[in-house]
Structure formats: C-alpha cells, structure tokens
C-alpha cells in the first residue's frame, strides 16, 4: 500500500524537519542494537514503506533527494539520474516506470529547506546499515559521515 504523500514534498520536508527537532532531545537514548531501535525499525518500515516504498537501507537521504527514495532507482543511484532516461522521462531498465530521479528533481525544486541539498555529492551507501533504523543512524552520525578518504 502506497500513500500519495509524495505529491507534497514541501509538506514532507517540513514533517522531516519537525520530527528531527522533536527527536533531538532524546538522541542520547537513540543507540543501535537495543529495543529502542527495534521500535524505530517497525515504525520506519510502516511509515516510510507506505509513503516512499522504503527499502530499509538504513542510510536515509530522502531530504537530499527530493523526498524520493534513491533505493527505488534500479541502479540505486545516489547522485542524480543516469544517462539512460528515455525521451518520455521513463526508466531505462523498467520502461513503464517514470524515472525515479526525474520525480526527485521536480520535487526538490519546491523544497525550500532542503531543496539545494540535491546539488551536493552524496557518499555511497553503507552496506552494513541495511535493515537498521535510519533515524538512529542519523543521530549517531554514522549515516551522514563521508568515507574516510573523502574527509578533509
């Protein structure tokens, strides 16, 4: 079941911003491996699954990619559309599907808070975070960290 909230990226980015602010005071309890993570995983699976077709990569970058999950791109691209997009804007690999990144780009244009993040370079996904809580990985800082060789 998908909920059609992705048509409202502006609302979604504000919802993300608000959730982040509300969770911030509790960040010291947000650690991986415990029962708190289990609750987060269930909630994230339900909510993000329904809204974004979330694949539980645990390395969530939704606000940087137009509130559109890059894991739903068949190439798992993290930095924009590949060169195979069809003239009608559909995916090279799944011809009947609209390119995930075409949608992401259009949505990011109306996002006033995080829209510009779309132009930044995102690091590759961290494989060991799969099926964990993206919120917890966000707060511990592991998800947002660049690979060691990219750091200044």
């Amino acid at each position: 079941m998908r909920i059609g909230l992705q048509a409202y990226p502006r609302f979604l980015e504000l919802a993300y911003q608000l959730s982040r602010r509300l969770l911030l005071p509790f960040s010291r309890w947000m650690v991986p491996g415990g029962w708190i993570e289990k609750i987060f995983v269930v909630l994230e699976k339900g909510a993000k699954g329904a809204i974004f077709d979330c694949r539980m990569c645990g390395d969530c970058v939704l606000h940087s990619t137009g509130m559109t999950c890059p894991m739903t791109c068949p190439k798992n691209m993290r930095n924009g559309p590949c060169g195979g997009v069809r003239q009608n804007g559909n995916c090279e690999i799944i011809p009947e599907m609209k390119c995930v990144w075409m949608q992401a780009w259009d949505r990011s244009k109306v996002m006033r808070v995080y829209g510009d993040d779309f132009l930044g370079i995102l690091p590759p996904r961290k494989g060991q975070l799969q099926d964990g809580s993206a919120w917890i990985n966000d707060f511990t800082g592991i998800a947002v960290q660049d690979p060691a060789s990219w750091l200044e």
Partner: peptide, 18 residues
C-alpha cells in the same frame, strides 16, 4: 546480479582521492 555499489560520481571522487 547488478552491483551498483558506487555510482559514477562516487567512483570519480573515490578515484580522485586515490
């Protein structure tokens, strides 16, 4: 099995850092 562990841009940046 498609891999796509990196994408062209993260590959570029990785090669640059090497």
């Amino acid at each position: 099995k498609p891999v796509f562990d990196l994408d062209s841009i993260s590959l570029l940046k990785t090669a640059r850092s090497m």
